[in-house]
Design a protein around this nucleic acid. Structure first.
Lengths: 205, 205
DNA sequence: CCGGCCCCCCAAGTTTATTCGGGTTGCGAG
DNA sequence: CTCGCAACCCGAATAAACTTGGGGGGCCGG
């Protein structure tokens, strides 16, 4: 394992950045070479600077962290560690699939970040204890929707009426109702008005 | 102005806690006497320790930060500074009404926290520049709902049908529809399916 | 290849929601 | 006082959404 690693922090909260800088200051193997507060600038930064480890927050105002991940992974040999709050647990699976090497919750003690970095650099996939817990709870028997159902859910989330949906998809209104009934069944809700809410909970959409 | 202040940090992210500790370490007037990651324990802490300044995150898993604020303000002479992310901007007005002395966004540079502390201790109400911006944008002409409209909004949020609502309130279904139409108008949405979502955005309900 | 399963679709009939016209009350400004 | 306005309510007619029952097509595994 090489002796030294250059770290880029990507997080929209300056205070969190400070916390991470402080954390890495106590570990000589790591040097923080930059800290960005917006996703848009990450691509350019990693092109121009010798970064080999990125600490990436999933929740940022301008770009969804997950998109940044997709952008930088693969562009060069870079290890990405996800740092996330409670609200993005549903994206974690996807992040790992995209090539993230570790996941740590902001509710973990800071040392977990170090542990994650070292494990990831050693070639392991690391998931912090707190994260493992949370994922276990959040992972219900998986709800799978057909593409038609997804499409209708999507329109539903935008507040379209059945009539409008029928028009857009060029099908009859009762057919839309039928699909919605399926959504109700699969999402286990009794009223249409709860479908979108539930879908968000399950991180569909 | 007294020479020294004892600070309690309340935030569910240990890394943010570290960042704040680091920040205050550079200012001799302030000593961090504790950091809590859950709201429930705040009441007990301020009873037993000499705290005169609380840095409070509004977004915590167990208790809404705003409730903690209500609990500790007034119990003794304590200055409370709100530190919040993007998602709770709607609660800020309420927090100030409850007696918070300053509001800082997590998207502000850390020095803003110091500035807020000093201003608040000097007797001012401090709102960080970033926060002032965000509040300006978020503050539409205030939406006021009648008690009937609130009641119906409440039932709506629980996914009740118009029929059920009519039954519960002992009024006719068309009357319920009428109130719902009023809600649509006041909340400026075109579809019923968006009413509840919008109500959440505006911090009604 | 055939039956089961899932997805997709629709017409007719029923239930639910909305609009429309019209009425009551209370309250503040002119 | 009386006008205007906002909130509240209803019945009847209209529009929208839902359920039911039934038909296809594709894709297994037997």
């Amino acid at each position: 394992m090489s002796a030294h690693h250059n770290i880029l922090i990507v997080d929209d909260h300056p205070i969190t950045q400070s916390g991470l800088r402080l954390l890495f200051a106590g570990h000589e193997r790591f040097t923080v070479v930059g800290a960005l507060d917006r996703g848009a600038t990450v691509g350019a930064f990693v092109q121009s600077q010798p970064v080999d480890l990125v600490i990436l927050d999933l929740n940022m105002p301008d770009v969804r962290g997950i998109n940044i991940l997709a952008e930088i992974v693969g562009s060069r040999d870079m290890t990405v560690i996800i740092l996330t709050g409670e609200s993005q647990y549903g994206e974690v699976d996807y992040a790992l699939k995209l090539g993230a090497r570790a996941v740590v919750s902001k509710a973990d003690p800071p040392e977990e970040v170090i542990a994650a970095c070292e494990a990831a650099l050693a070639g392991d996939i690391y998931i912090s204890p707190h994260m493992r817990d949370a994922l276990g709870k959040h992972r219900q028997p998986p709800v799978t929707l057909s593409s038609r159902q997804m499409a209708i859910l999507h329109y539903l989330a935008q507040g379209e009426s059945n009539k409008e949906i029928a028009y857009r998809l060029s099908i009859a209104q009762p057919t839309v109702s039928f699909h919605i009934a399926e959504l109700r069944r699969k999402l286990d809700v009794s009223h249409n008005r709860k479908i979108v809410e539930r879908a968000h909970e399950l991180n569909l959409l």
